[in-house]
Design a protein around this nucleic acid. Structure first.
Lengths: 341, 341
DNA sequence: AAACCTTGCGAAAACGTTTTCGTGTTAATA
DNA sequence: TATTAACACGAAAACGTTTTCGCAAGGTTT
C-alpha cells in the first residue's frame, strides 16, 4: 500500500481544485465523466479513504459509541459488549470501551473524556462506588449536554434516560421457587451488600418467593458477602454453620455459587444430594464446573443489542422530547447438575 | 453543566480574537494578566474543554490506541485488555477495542477502520482464520503506512514488528514435567489443530518434556480438539477410551481441562487420585472449579502492559529504524487440587 | 441579436484548535 | 528627538473534508 493520500494530493496530480476531486469521488453530476473516471481510477489505485478525523470534525459526529463498564474481566459484561459491538458494527458504528474499575472518580473521568466530542453517545453500567455515593451529577451533565445516554444492568432510577435491565427480581424469584419446588426447606441466599442494586433486587425475588409460600424470612439465611469484608470463602462458610444448615442455596452470582459448592464439598456435603445450588449469570463457571451449575441466565448479548438499538434510535431521531423506555430482559433458569431431580 | 462552549464563543464574549483566548487559556505571556484572569474564570465557569476532534485533526494524532482481539468473551484476552487500559490511561491514551471474531475478513475491516486516522497505533492478536490462511498483507500495509503495530499472544513471525508472547513451549514443558514428577506414566495432551500456533507450541513443550525422559511419543495420547469437529466432550472422551488410559492430562486451555475433569468423573475416575489434570490460563474456571485446577498462568495483565509500553515507545521515538523486539512473558505453574501431592 | 440555460469547474466557508508572524501602541533608551 | 524595545493583541495558515455559491464558456431559445 502507498502512503495515506489526501484530496489535496489528488487535486495537485490533476491540477484541479480540491472541491472538484471531492465531487468527482462522490460521482457528482457537476463533474465531467471523463475527469471523474480519471480521478476515481487514481484514487482507487492509491486506496484513497477520506480521513476520519476531518469527517468527524465537519460532521460533528464520530460514528463511535462509548461504553463504560465497571470491569471487563467479567463474563456478563463481555457478553453485553459483544451484543453492542454486533449491532453497532452493523450500523457502521465503532465502540470505545472504558472501565471504571468500580470507581466513581474513574467513571466521571471516562465520561468527561468520551463526552468531549469523542463519541456520539454513551452506554454505561454504573460503578458500585457511584451507587454507594449516590452521586449522579455527571449523568445529568451529560444529558443536559445533549449526549444520548443508555444505562444497562446497573441503572439509576433518578436519571431519566433509556435503560435496559435484567428482571433481577424475577430471576431471584425463579431460582428460589425452583429450590422450593425440588423440596428444599431451608434456603439461604448469598448476596451482596444492599447498595449493589442488582444484588438487592435478586434478594427481593428470593423474599417474594419465600413469602408466596408463607415461609418466614430468616435473617441468618441472608448472607451478605463482599470482598471488602475479607475472604469470601470464610463469609460463605458461615451460611453453612448454622443450627439448621441450608439444603438450598441461591447465590446472586457465579462466583459465590462456585465457592458455595466448594465449601459444601469441604464440609462433606454433596451437591445436589445434600444441598442444591443455583447461581446467577450463565458464564463459563456455570457451564464447566463439576457439577455444572443450575443458574439464572441473564442474556447479556440481548441486553447489549437492545441497549445499542435504543441509543442509535435516539441518535437518529431529531425530536427533542423523546419518551425514554426501560426495557426489561427476562431471565431463564437453566437447569443443570447442581440441583436435584 | 452548560452546553459545550468553544473558543469562538468565549472570544465573542470578551470581544477579542480566538487566538487571544487560546493563548490566555494556555497562560501565554503574550496576554495581559488582567485579561487572562477574566478569560480563565469565564472558561472555568463554563467548563471549557478543547474539542478533541479539532485537536486530533490539528495534531494528526488521536491519543487513542486500537486493540483487535479475536474474542472478548475470553478471560485471557480481558486480562490483557485490562493491562493495556491501565498503562494507556496512565499515559493519557484511550483504547478502542474491536473484535475479529476469529474472522480474517473482520480483522481486515477493523484494521482498515482503525488505520484511517482513528488511532495512533494498533495492538493485535491475530484471528485463527488469518493464521490458517496465512494472509498477512494487511499487517504489512499497516506498517508501510507508518502506523506502529504490536502483536501479542498470537503473532506472525513473518511480520517485523514488536511482539509480546507467552512462553508457550515452556508452559507446556512445565506442565508435562510436573505431571511426570508426580508420577504420571501415561500423559495425554488435549490440544488444538496445528494451525493454532499457541496450541502447537504448547504441544511442543509437551513433547520436549517427554523426550527429556526418553518417553516415546504416543500419537493416541495427542488429541486434537476443535469445535469444528463437533462436540468437544465427545472428542475428549476419546482420550480416555484407550487400551492404556492416561493418568495425567495436560490441556492447552481451561475449557478442555474442565471438560476433561467432568469426563473423568463421568467415567468414575477421581481427580486427582486416578488422573491428574493441568490446564492453561489462570481464569475463573481454574480458580473456582471443584477440584480447583492446577494450571499454567499466562500473566495476561503483564502482557497487556508490556505490549502497550512497546507501542507507546514506538510512538514516542522519532527514529525511523527501530529495532523491534519480541518480549517473552514467562509462565508459572499454579498448583491446585487437580494434581496429586 | 439579446436573453437565457446548461455544463464544468473553482472559491470559500465551516468544523475548533494551535501557532507563527505581524502590527500598533506605549515606554525606555541613545 | 529619533530609535528601539517591550507589550498586548489580531490575522492567517494549517489539519482534511463537504457543500453552497459563483462564474465563465458555450449552446439554445426568442
Amino acid at each position: 500500500m502507498k502512503k495515506k493520500i489526501t484530496l489535496k494530493q489528488i487535486s495537485k496530480e490533476f491540477e484541479v481544485s480540491i472541491s472538484t476531486v471531492s465531487k468527482a469521488l462522490k460521482d457528482s453530476h457537476e463533474i465531467s465523466n471523463e475527469l471523474k473516471e480519471k480521478i476515481k481510477a487514481f484514487a482507487d489505485y492509491y486506496h484513497y479513504r477520506p480521513n476520519s478525523l476531518a469527517l468527524n470534525l465537519r460532521n460533528q459526529k464520530t460514528k463511535t459509541i462509548g461504553i463504560i463498564i465497571p470491569e471487563i474481566v467479567h463474563h456478563f459484561f463481555t457478553t453485553v459488549i459483544s451484543g453492542i459491538e454486533h449491532v453497532a458494527n452493523e450500523k457502521g458504528y465503532n465502540v470505545m470501551i472504558c472501565m471504571s474499575n468500580e470507581s466513581y472518580e474513574k467513571e466521571v473521568l471516562n465520561m468527561d473524556m468520551l463526552a468531549n466530542g469523542v463519541v456520539d453517545g454513551i452506554i454505561v453500567s454504573v460503578a458500585k462506588e457511584t451507587e454507594e455515593k449516590e452521586e449522579y451529577s455527571h449523568f445529568k451533565d451529560l444529558i443536559s449536554n445533549g449526549i444520548p445516554l443508555v444505562m444497562f444492568d446497573r441503572v439509576i432510577n433518578e436519571i431519566y434516560c433509556n435503560k435496559v435491565i435484567t428482571n433481577d427480581v424475577d430471576g431471584g424469584y425463579l431460582a428460589t421457587k425452583h429450590l422450593m419446588n425440588i423440596g428444599c426447606k431451608n434456603i439461604a441466599i448469598l448476596t451482596t451488600p444492599d447498595y449493589v442494586t442488582v444484588g438487592d433486587l435478586r434478594k427481593q425475588g428470593y423474599i417474594k418467593a419465600l413469602q408466596s409460600r408463607n415461609i418466614p424470612i430468616d435473617d441468618n439465611l441472608i448472607v451478605k458477602v463482599s470482598e471488602r469484608y475479607g475472604d469470601i470463602e470464610e463469609q460463605i462458610k458461615k451460611a453453612f454453620d448454622q443450627k439448621n444448615p441450608p439444603d438450598g442455596i441461591f447465590a446472586v452470582n457465579e462466583i459465590y455459587a462456585a465457592v458455595a459448592m466448594k465449601t459444601a464439598k469441604n464440609k462433606g456435603l454433596n451437591v445436589p444430594e445434600d444441598v442444591s445450588v443455583i447461581g446467577f449469570t450463565d458464564g463459563l463457571i456455570s457451564q464447566y464446573s463439576t457439577p455444572s451449575l443450575t443458574t439464572v441466565a441473564q442474556h447479556g448479548y440481548a441486553m447489549g443489542e437492545k441497549a445499542v438499538k435504543l441509543l442509535l434510535d435516539e441518535l437518529d431521531s431529531q425530536e427533542s422530547d423523546i419518551q425514554y423506555k426501560t426495557e426489561i430482559i427476562e431471565t431463564d433458569l437453566i437447569l443443570r447438575e447442581s440441583t436435584k431431580e
